[in-house]
Simulated scan of single mutants.
Amino acid sequence: MEIRKILNNNVVVSNNEADQEIVVMGRGLAFKKKVGEEVDTSKIEKTFVLEKQGTADKLGQLLRDTPAVYLDISSKIMDYAQSLLPYKLDEYLYVALTDHLSFAISRHEQGIELKNQLLWEIRKYYKQEFQVALRALDIIKEETGITLGEDEAASIALHLVNSQLSSDNMASAVQVTEMVNNILNIVKYHFKMELDEDSVNYERFLTHLRFFAVRFVRKEKLEDSVDDFLFDQIRQKYEDAFEATRKVALYLERNYEWLISRDEQVYLTVHIHRVSQRQQIS
């Protein structure tokens, strides 16, 4: 196994027997080594097959500014996640997760704590990913002594969810994209307005729609927990937004034979109200 590129003393790029580009990791793996020399396979601790062009370069850029401890933490989290989750994790998750953890821990050390506005939704809709993320917090504490909160667990869980969409299941990713785009168009047409794509409310709405579409792809059924009083309150208070939700529900029923729950109708209505109302006010 020949060294094709040295990313740092512990990480090199090579090719496996199938001539696939791989990143191999191990303590001191590249110490005093040069491109073209043989990899000491006895030192290899981790191997990543790089199916996407450019992943090695992105990993190299990341490694130049990221302490090795974050790479180890990400590796442990991914190993744990892959042992529990029923789908393949995209290889780029390793890069994205390492970068995220480095930034999150740096923020924590500076006393900057960011709230995840989707914590409740992530905890409810993505229970498996959230449980993995809670274990990730334990791993972070074990390795660094730093305790991060559930808001950070929600962010890690979101990386896991996104990894599923960017993996080899391209048909699902396309379906999610089409569904989200069509729902956005229904809302825009209903209110006869363009939405501010730079606003926080738009970003929240987009994230909710993506979660929403992923649940359909994964054939997850959500049991109703909204009582009649709250449902009627939302329907009456946000009448225009609820009408837009009704149109979305009709589109999903006709095109996907998906009858969305009352919970979903409530959440969609609230998000639609926020994104449209703030737009109108501004």
Rank of each mutant, 00 (worst) to 15 (best):
Lys33Gln: 11
Thr147Cys: 10
Pro86Gln: 10
Leu101Met: 05
Val39Glu: 01
Leu63Cys: 02
Lys52Gln: 12
Ile105Pro: 02
Phe48Thr: 10
Thr98Asp: 03
Lys124His: 13
Gln131Arg: 15
Ile139Val: 09
Ala30His: 00
Glu150Lys: 10
Lys34Ile: 10
Leu118Met: 15
Thr47Ile: 15
Trp120Pro: 09
Glu38His: 12
Ser42Pro: 01
Phe48Cys: 05
Trp120Leu: 15
Asp57Gly: 08
Asp90Ile: 07
Ala68Met: 13
Leu85Phe: 04
Ala30Arg: 00
Arg135Glu: 06
Val95Tyr: 07
Lys52Asp: 10
Gln117Cys: 13
Leu160Glu: 02
Asp57Arg: 13
Lys43Glu: 01
Ile44Asn: 06
Ser42Phe: 06
Ile122Trp: 02
Gln53His: 13
Ser75Gln: 14
Trp120Ser: 14
Met78Ile: 15
Glu143Asp: 11
Lys34Leu: 09
Phe103His: 14
Gln53Ala: 13
Glu142Asn: 07
Tyr125Pro: 00
Phe103Arg: 13
Ile122Tyr: 09
Tyr94Phe: 14
Ile140Pro: 00
Asn116Thr: 08
Asp99Gly: 03
Ala68His: 08
Thr147Pro: 04
Leu101Asp: 00
Asp90Glu: 14
Leu160Ile: 04
Leu89Asn: 04
Ser42Trp: 04
Gly145Leu: 06
Lys115Gly: 09
Leu148Thr: 00
Met78Tyr: 00
Ile156Gly: 00
Arg27Lys: 14
Tyr94Arg: 09
Tyr125Phe: 14
Thr98Tyr: 05
Ser102Lys: 14
Leu101Tyr: 03
Ala104Trp: 04
Gln61Phe: 15
Gly111Leu: 07
His100Lys: 08
Asp79Cys: 07
Ser74Tyr: 02
Thr47Met: 12
Asp72Trp: 05
Ile139Trp: 06
Lys46Arg: 12
Asp65Pro: 07
Leu160Phe: 09
Glu152Ala: 02
Arg64Gly: 14
Leu97His: 00
Tyr87Trp: 06
Val69Phe: 03
Ala30Ser: 05
Val39Phe: 04
Lys34Pro: 01
Tyr80Phe: 14
Gln110Leu: 12
Asp138Glu: 11
Gly26Pro: 01
Leu62Val: 05
Lys32Ser: 09
Leu160Lys: 03
Gln53Gly: 12
Gln131Lys: 15
Gln117Arg: 15
Glu121Trp: 05
Ser75Thr: 13
Lys52Asn: 09
Arg107Leu: 10
Ser74Asp: 02
Val95Cys: 03
Lys43His: 06
Thr147Leu: 15
His159Phe: 02
Leu114Met: 12
Ala68Pro: 06
Glu37Val: 06
His100Phe: 13
Lys88Met: 13
Val49His: 01
Gly60Ala: 07
Leu59Lys: 01
Phe48Arg: 03
Ser74Thr: 10
Ala157Ile: 05
Met78Ala: 03
Lys33Met: 11
Lys88Gly: 09
Glu109Leu: 14
Glu51His: 09
His100Met: 08
Lys58Gly: 08
